[in-house]
Simulated assay, not measured.
Amino acid sequence: MQDRNILIVEDDIDMRRLIAQYLERAGFDVREVGNAPEMRLALADGPVDLLLLDVMLPGQDGLDICRRLRGDPDHASLPIIMLTALTDMPDRVVGLEIGADDYLGKPFEPRELLARIKAVLRRSPRMAQPAAPAAGVVPAELEVIRFEGWELDTRSRQLISPERVSVGLASSDYRVLLCLLRHPDQPLSRDRLLTEAFGRERSPIDRAVDVCVSRLRAHLEPDSRKPRIIRTVRHEGYMYSPTRDAAAADVL
Rank of each mutant, 00 (worst) to 15 (best):
S166C: 12
R123W: 05
R164P: 13
A170Y: 10
T243W: 15
L178D: 15
A247F: 13
G27L: 05
L69H: 00
E201A: 15
M239Q: 12
C179A: 14
R16V: 00
A208N: 03
E151A: 15
H219N: 10
M56Q: 08
R190Q: 09
V48W: 08
D64A: 15
V94D: 13
L53D: 01
I81V: 12
R16M: 01
D101Y: 07
I81L: 09
V55K: 02
L23D: 05
Y22D: 00
Q129V: 15
I230M: 01
L83E: 00
M1P: 12
G105S: 14
E97M: 09
C66N: 02
R202Q: 08
R16H: 01
F147N: 05
E38D: 11
A119G: 14
V176N: 04
Q60H: 10
P37E: 09
R111Y: 07
E24Y: 02
P79I: 00
H75C: 10
E10G: 00
V209M: 05
E112N: 06
R67T: 03
L18H: 02
A132Y: 10
L188S: 05
R182Y: 11
D91F: 02
K106R: 08
R234K: 12
L104Y: 06
I229Y: 06
V48C: 14
L50E: 04
A170H: 10
V94M: 14
R111W: 09
N5Q: 13
Q60K: 06
D101Q: 11
P242C: 02
P162I: 07
D173G: 10
T243N: 15
D72M: 12
I65G: 00
A76N: 03
L52M: 01
R122H: 14
Y22C: 00
V209P: 09
A134D: 11
P110Y: 01
I160Y: 02
M56V: 08
C179N: 12
G149F: 01
S172M: 14
C66S: 05
G149L: 08
L159R: 01
A76G: 12
Y22H: 00
I229F: 08
M1W: 12
Y103A: 07
E32V: 07
K118R: 15
L50M: 09
V9C: 04
I65N: 00
L53P: 02
R4D: 15
V93I: 14
P133Y: 09
E112C: 08
R217S: 07
G149E: 09
I80M: 06
E112W: 04
F108I: 03
P204S: 09
R126Q: 15
I230A: 02
G149T: 03
I117V: 13
D185W: 06
G199K: 09
D91G: 05
S203E: 11
P130G: 06
D61S: 04
L177I: 05
